[in-house]
Write a protein that binds this DNA or RNA. Structure first.
Lengths: 351, 351
DNA sequence: ATGACTTAGTAAAACGTTTTACTTCCCCTT
DNA sequence: AAGGGGAAGTAAAACGTTTTACTAAGTCAT
């Protein structure tokens, strides 16, 4: 291992440029307004010749800023979070921040542990999508207390408390659109597979469905609602249950669940679309390659990610609390939702 | 923002325990063999009462260790890497290391940029899966030179140079198994969709296929080999191309590509299995929910991830270079590979 | 009584920056 | 000639640890 000899410090640069370390620091951080260009140039050249790179640890020790943002997500193998992180990281890198990533594996205990750990690393800010568990007592109380004590700017994304700063898709509005679309296709018995109802995202999406029902003067029967997790297994199990309750369509609150519904329907001998309509939420990359492409609500993940960075950094750098923009998901038509027969008849006769 | 008043330093603890900061440091890091238990206890209590947490920045500045490992992956939305990171992170956390994650987006320029940036953060080690581009000139030269100069322990995973330390699945052996299986099912015209051939993983998998052909005294025709990327689009494009060349089966070097093959076959009016057999590589979570579940080679991602951590930390902590274990992928039977008619006949008649 | 150990501790340097509070010199105004 | 004010810098403190090299006091064998 070479290591390349001793480390080049600011002192070495100072010596070579014939100035004090102070001046080097000033010049290199662009605060040397008072120094003449000649000196600045000399310092810059010396730094370049020695390939000097400031030691970020030493800098952070004195400035109390690390330029690191901590991220906690519940499940990296969930395409939504993978994609979110994928967009967040370069958005932050561009502004000079690095990312320490933690995966809580949907366990509140890990959320707390990782947040403490990130605080111990003096991160400048936290981007949080806690586990579903973390929104239940006693975890939620502990979590909020902890965040209060730490004094580190934080922002929730995708999963949130209503009274804390957050960025997420417009859950209610988006699922209202989805449910309306299903109803326009003639479905009035729509099974719903939700995520954990401890999550606002799930509750709000459910509220959207209820609103769609209400608009038609109907009511969502509680036996058509299946609460689960945002995973494939939930989709299969939910499908099995809902099929027995006579629904003509299933609205899954994530594409992962929708994939499970596909599997469940197949197992029950039902064809997607022909026998059972399916609506997803997310528009994961796999949805379009399915034999029956999934009709789903596309989350603008990239925009959400970038907005989250923008809002968090505003808090970090100037303490302002921006009002985050709202993002609507967009209906992506696949082939998994069929118009119901009588509805089709009506369309025909109206031509 | 509360912030909770002034920061508690080692001096505060020292004052309260009535000893010097030196002693506190010694006790808290367990190196105070010479101090009597009474004193140690006093120090520990004082630390606890004040809720003292050592400032990791200050510590790192003097110890020159950060307990951070930098990871660079080419694409987080690829389930293989998402899962790998998911396993790596807790494996490292368990041993006291945090992870700074970077996503190169398959661009060599970013590989280099991020490695420099991680070095600037004084990470203790690097876990690298560079972009395909990084294995071509001039990037590969630059990359290796850079790593040599930095003097930071590193380990390649999944993607590697033969003469550098790495951990990965046994590519050649695994694809040999896959190809043998296809041949046992009667396929002798197997189209292959590879990843970038700049990658050892792709080349070695291809070598495995060639060996399987050789075992039967046959030869893999070059027109049956389609080089692409490890993504869905490549799968579709490759499928279209290979179908025109009369293959009865396609071996895709990743499940993502296999999904593309499914889509491509559908577009061409061919049924998976009945008209075209498909073999994948990875066993991503979606493969089992497909209408025709994918037959694929399961990579032991978790084991690879944990082995990578073990080997890297050995280098970091004691400078030893362990010989990494070899991992074979395992055949997972779906329904995407059919036995060819004449083969089926033979089986029947032999009963 | 001496020297050699051991025990219980500490003072101060070091890590590599940034930042604060100066100093020195020169020019300009009155 | 005195004083003000900018220009061009710098010395030293500070950030919060760890580590090195010591001290002071007591114990024990000779």
């Amino acid at each position: 291992m070479s290591g390349g000899g001793k480390k080049v410090t600011i002192r070495d640069v100072a010596r070579r440029a014939g100035v004090s370390p102070t001046s080097v620091s000033l010049v290199l951080s662009g605060k040397a307004a008072s120094l003449p260009e000649a000196t600045r140039e000399r310092v810059r050249r010396a730094a370049q010749e020695l390939d000097y790179r400031a030691d970020l640890l030493a800098r952070s020790l004195v400035t109390r800023r690390t330029n690191i943002i901590g991220i906690v997500v519940p499940d990296l193998t969930n395409p939504f979070f993978a994609e979110a992180v994928r967009h967040i990281q370069p958005a932050l890198a561009e502004r000079g921040y690095d990312v320490i990533l933690c995966n809580s594996e949907e366990r509140a205990e890990n959320d707390l542990r990782y947040i403490r750990l990130l605080a111990g690393r003096s991160v400048d800010g936290l981007l949080l999508a806690p586990s579903a568990e973390a929104f239940t007592e006693p975890y939620s109380r502990t979590l909020r207390k902890l965040l209060g004590e730490l004094g580190i700017p934080y922002l929730f994304f995708d999963r949130y408390f209503e009274d804390e700063p957050w960025v997420a898709v417009d859950n209610e509005g988006s699922s209202l659109l989805a449910a309306r679309y299903l109803m326009e296709q003639g479905h009035e018995k729509i099974g719903v597979i939700t995520g954990p109802l401890s999550l606002n995202s799930s509750r709000n999406r459910l509220a959207g469905v209820r609103r769609a029902y209400a608009e038609r003067g109907l009511c969502l029967r509680s036996e058509w609602v299946y609460e689960g997790k945002y995973d494939i297994a939930t989709g299969s199990a939910g499908c099995a249950e809902l099929l027995g309750r006579g629904v003509s369509a299933v609205f899954a609150f994530s594409d992962m669940q929708a994939y499970g519904v596909y599997a469940g329907a197949r197992r029950a001998g039902r064809r997607i679309s022909a026998d059972l309509s399916v609506m997803g939420f997310d528009d994961s990359v796999f949805s379009s390659v399915l034999e029956v492409p999934l009709t789903t609500m596309r989350q603008p993940v990239r925009q959400i990610a970038e907005e989250a960075c923008r809002v968090l950094l505003a808090r970090v750098e100037s303490g302002e609390t921006l009002r985050p923009q709202n993002f609507a998901a967009q209906l992506v038509l696949g082939k998994s939702v069929a118009a119901l027969p009588h509805e089709r008849e009506r369309e025909k006769s109206s031509q």
